[in-house]
């Protein structure tokens, strides 16, 4: 089995690990670092449950090999809250019906964090277009859109 040693900063902590070349980034996060908030929902790169940030940009960790994260900074859902205080996007998803079963939620939240970094005041159309890479079966997207509007407002206020 072909293995590689990688050094990657995940949620602010540096990890050195020897990983099989075929290890997906999503599996590395889940199985090696026990960060199971990043989910697997499909094999076709469509559902977005595995979305994480690499150097601040949102990607699908199931479309990336762990070795590709070598030398980069990864942020997962577990890295958003600071000292137990929810990130405004997390808080908004709680309060505005942004989640039900919760399985797609980490992916939507990571996508939202990146979206609002690029565009702090998105229109509803921009929000919906920006969610093209994430699927939710529970909410009908209304609660998610409301959550993102609320989070954007709060983040702009800060």
């Amino acid at each position: 089995m072909s293995k590689k040693t990688i050094e990657v900063v995940v949620n602010g902590r540096t990890h050195r690990a020897e990983v099989p070349a075929r290890r997906m980034l999503s599996d590395f996060l889940r199985d090696d670092l026990f960060l199971t908030g990043t989910k697997r929902g499909c094999e076709t790169g469509v559902c977005g449950c595995c979305s994480v940030l690499i150097d601040g940009e949102v990607i699908k960790s199931c479309l990336s090999l762990a070795v590709h994260a070598d030398g980069h900074e990864v942020t997962t859902i577990e890295g958003l809250a600071v000292d137990g205080v929810l990130h405004p996007v997390q808080e908004a998803f709680v309060n505005h019906g942004g989640l039900q079963c919760g399985y797609c939620t980490p992916g939507f939240i990571m996508t939202t964090v990146a979206m609002l970094n690029d565009n702090p005041n998105p229109t509803e159309d921009e929000i919906r277009h920006g969610l093209n890479g994430n699927l939710c079966r529970c909410t009908g997207y209304v609660g998610i859109v409301e959550s993102i509007k609320a989070a954007a407002e709060k983040l702009r206020g800060n």
Binding site: G45, G48, S51, I54, E57, V58, I59, K60, L63, S64, T111, A114, M115, G130, N132, G133, N134
Partner: peptide, 9 residues
């Protein structure tokens, strides 16, 4: 094209 994640990858 595609979606935000794929545009970043």
């Amino acid at each position: 094209l595609a979606n935000p994640q794929v545009r970043n990858q």
